[in-house]
Amino acid sequence: MALTTKYQALIDIAEASNIQDLQVVEQEGVLHIRGTAPNADVKNKLWDVYNQLDPNFLSGDVVMHVDVSTAVEGSRARVITQNSNLNIRKGPGTDQPIVGKAAKDEIIILISRANDQWWLVRTQDGEEGYCYAQYLEPVG
C-alpha cells in the first residue's frame, strides 16, 4: 500500500489545518511531513492522528517535523516535561553545565532560538539559559 494511502487521513488533516510551508514527500520509503502549524493544538492533533494510523509509531515509515508558528522570540511557552524540572543550561547542548531549572507547567519567555533543538529562555525568576525545544509548548 502506498504511504500516501496509508496516511491519507493524516495528510488530509495537515492540508486542512493552515500549515505554512507544508511538505508531504515520500522519499526512500519514508513519508516526510514538514511545516509550521498555527498553534500547539494543531500539532498535537496531527500527532494523535499519526498515532491512530500507526500505533506507537512502530512502522518507522513517517518522519513528521511540524513546528509551531507561535514559538517566536518574545513569546511565552509552557514547560511540558513529563514530571521533572526542565534543565536550563549555559549553552545549547546537554554537555553544557546546568545553570537553572524550570518546573513542569511553568511559563517561561522565549528569548531567541539557538537552533532547531535549543531555545535561549528566561524564567519567571529571571534565570537565563538554554532549554531543549521539545519540552516547550508555545502558549497563546
Binding site: 526512500e28 519514508v30 500527532w47 509509531f57 518507522g60 518522519v63 513528521m64 532547531d116 533543538q117 521539545q134
Partner: peptide, 27 residues
C-alpha cells in the same frame, strides 16, 4: 513506558533524519 513513546518520536523526527526506527523498543 507507552506514555513517553510520542515524546521520543517527536524529538527524533525533529532532527530531520532519513528514518526513525523504534520497532525494537519494548513498550
Amino acid at each position: 513506558e507507552q506514555s513517553r513513546v510520542q515524546v521520543l518520536k517527536q524529538s527524533l523526527d525533529a532532527l530531520s533524519p532519513k528514518k526513525v526506527d523504534i520497532a525494537a523498543i519494548e513498550i
